[in-house]
Nucleic acid binder design. Structure first.
Length: 272
DNA sequence: CCGGACGCCTGTCGGC
DNA sequence: TGCCGACAGGCGTCCG
């Protein structure tokens, strides 16, 4: 899926087309997602103005005057902005059709994503309430990571991908951030110094910022709102590069190994 | 409380 | 060429 940069890319791409516009029609072709798409979605949304699209972690929040549509892209989801008369293809599950011929279309082949409604504060919704800080939140600091890590004997990669620690860092950007910070992904989180966590905080922000600038990373399913892929794939230094030379040291080939049930990539020389 | 294993889905790819 | 298993960007749940 979309990790944070892909979700933010989607938000930035979609928002200018539809913010401030009336949502005229909701078309749901498939309700079977991670959670069922609510049957009353059209009744709640049609005729309402979309105030803004926010992002929290990997969730998109479509704010309407009467509540918020919470969208998650799962592993294979994407949103496109298309002319209203564009015929849907396989796995195009939901259309939000706005005035001015702008159709926001959700495609999600694996249906791990979701689209649910809340009339209350979306940040207090059970899906969002227990999430950790955004990567750019000052709270996400070396002191914070060092303190949390003391209770975490497991691999730092798992620690970094835990949404209660920091949000938005998935499998690609965990490997990339750890490589840039020179930290081995299997190193126990509690065995990492405050100084190295300071470097990791910077590395995470640097990688995510750069990825957002390039429209995210497309491995397979992800597309930007206009259908283009994310170009950060060309900037990946370790992810999916097993066997290739490390761009940092040049003399070592990138290893791959399953850590916490997820494939991980690292340079055994640059990362300790 | 924690981490680890597993399941949810479909599509694709590599090996035989 | 076809079949079959492994694997894929996430995350909630269950179990020990």
């Amino acid at each position: 899926m979309p990790e944070l940069p892909e979700v933010e890319t989607t938000r930035r791409g979609v928002a200018p087309h539809v913010e401030g516009r009336v949502l005229e029609t909701v078309r749901v072709r498939e309700t079977r997602m991670r959670q069922p798409v609510p049957a009353d979605l059209a009744a709640r949304l049609e005729g309402r103005i979309l105030c803004a699209i926010r992002r929290r972690a990997k969730y998109l929040l479509f704010d309407f005057p009467n509540g918020t549509l919470i969208v998650h892209l799962g592993m294979s989801g994407s949103l496109r902005v298309l002319p209203t008369d564009t015929p849907p293809q396989k796995h195009d599950h939901i259309d939000l059709i706005f005035e001015g011929d702008a159709c926001v279309r959700l495609r999600d082949p694996r249906r791990f994503g979701l689209m649910v409604w809340t009339s209350a504060d979306p940040l207090a919704h059970p899906l969002l309430a227990h999430l950790g800080p955004e990567p750019w939140d000052p709270k996400f600091s070396a002191d914070y990571l060092t303190a949390l890590a003391q209770a975490r004997p497991g691999p730092v990669k798992n620690f970094l991908m835990d949404g209660a620690v920091v949000v938005g860092v998935g499998n690609i950007y965990a490997s990339e951030s750890l490589h840039r910070a020179g930290i081995h992904p299997t190193r126990p989180a509690r065995r990492i110094s405050r100084a190295r966590y300071a470097g990791l905080v910077l590395a995470v922000r640097e990688v995510l910022d750069a990825a957002i600038q390039l429209g995210g990373t497309t491995l397979r399913d992800f597309t930007q709102e206009d259908g283009k892929p994310g170009y950060f794939r060309n900037e990946l230094r370790v992810y999916a590069r097993a066997g290739e030379p490390c761009l940092q040291c040049g003399g070592t080939h990138i290893r791959q190994r399953v850590i916490g049930q997820r494939m991980s990539y690292f340079c055994p020389v640059c990362q300790r």
